[in-house]
């Protein structure tokens, strides 16, 4: 079973619908035991990281997600799910799950023409291949909505990056059986669905093709 983690962070039904469209039956759950039992986990989310991390802890979902990660089964983080997987976010000075070394900081531009949040379609530059990325090539565009961006400490965890204004950030990251995108692949048209289908095929091994 595929479980979509529900921690009151955005509209999960769009993720569920996209899963359904690529032939993956996914259930939405906030029960830590169901999370542990799942074969695959999707960890989506939009909104405030500070309140999201609080909700995860209240429901015991933080431990369940970390256990799931250690079990080696595939996890997909989307948007806030990517940010919370890092160690720390500037948003509310919040400690996060720490699956990948790094932190999130807020976009800040001197140029007033650059709007925050970063909303819209932007290009992803692929740094190195990953089984989930499949046929996605550098320059393909995906839909972003976020005000904070990821600084990943080690280049080995970065698979794709995106530039907004003069800021380049990690937009596709991964470590072992964890893979995450800053963009909303469930709202990124056929390209996004292709990635979701790629996740479905993936067994959690980084080098498997």
């Amino acid at each position: 079973m595929v479980a979509i983690v529900d921690y009151d962070a955005g509209n999960l039904r769009s993720v569920q619908r996209a899963c359904q469209h690529v032939g993956m039956k996914a259930g939405i759950t906030s029960d830590p035991d169901e999370v542990r039992r799942a074969d695959r986990l999707i960890f989506p989310g939009v909104g405030s990281a500070a309140s999201a991390v609080g909700t995860l802890a209240e429901r015991g979902l933080d431990e369940a997600i970390l256990e799931f990660f250690r079990s080696g089964k595939p996890i997909l983080g989307i948007c806030l799910g990517l940010q919370i997987a890092l160690e720390f976010t500037e948003e509310g000075n919040q400690h996060c799950l720490g699956i990948i070394p790094g932190a999130c900081e807020r976009f800040s531009f001197r140029d007033k023409a650059l709007k925050v949040p970063h909303i819209g379609w932007n290009e992803v530059e692929i740094i190195k291949p990953h089984p989930v990325l499949g046929s996605v090539t550098s320059g393909d565009e995906f839909y972003f909505v976020h005000s904070y961006f990821a600084h990943v400490e080690r280049s080995e965890h970065v698979y794709g990056r995106t530039t907004y204004g003069d800021q380049t950030f990690s937009s596709v990251i991964g470590r072992d059986n964890f893979f995450a995108t800053q963009f909303h692949l469930e709202k990124s048209g056929e390209m996004g669905l292709k990635l979701l289908a790629g996740f479905m095929q993936w067994e959690g091994d980084q080098d498997a093709q």
Partner: peptide
């Protein structure tokens, strides 16, 4: 629409 269209 949500079942068929995967853009915002």
């Amino acid at each position: 629409v949500a079942e068929q269209v995967f853009i915002p």
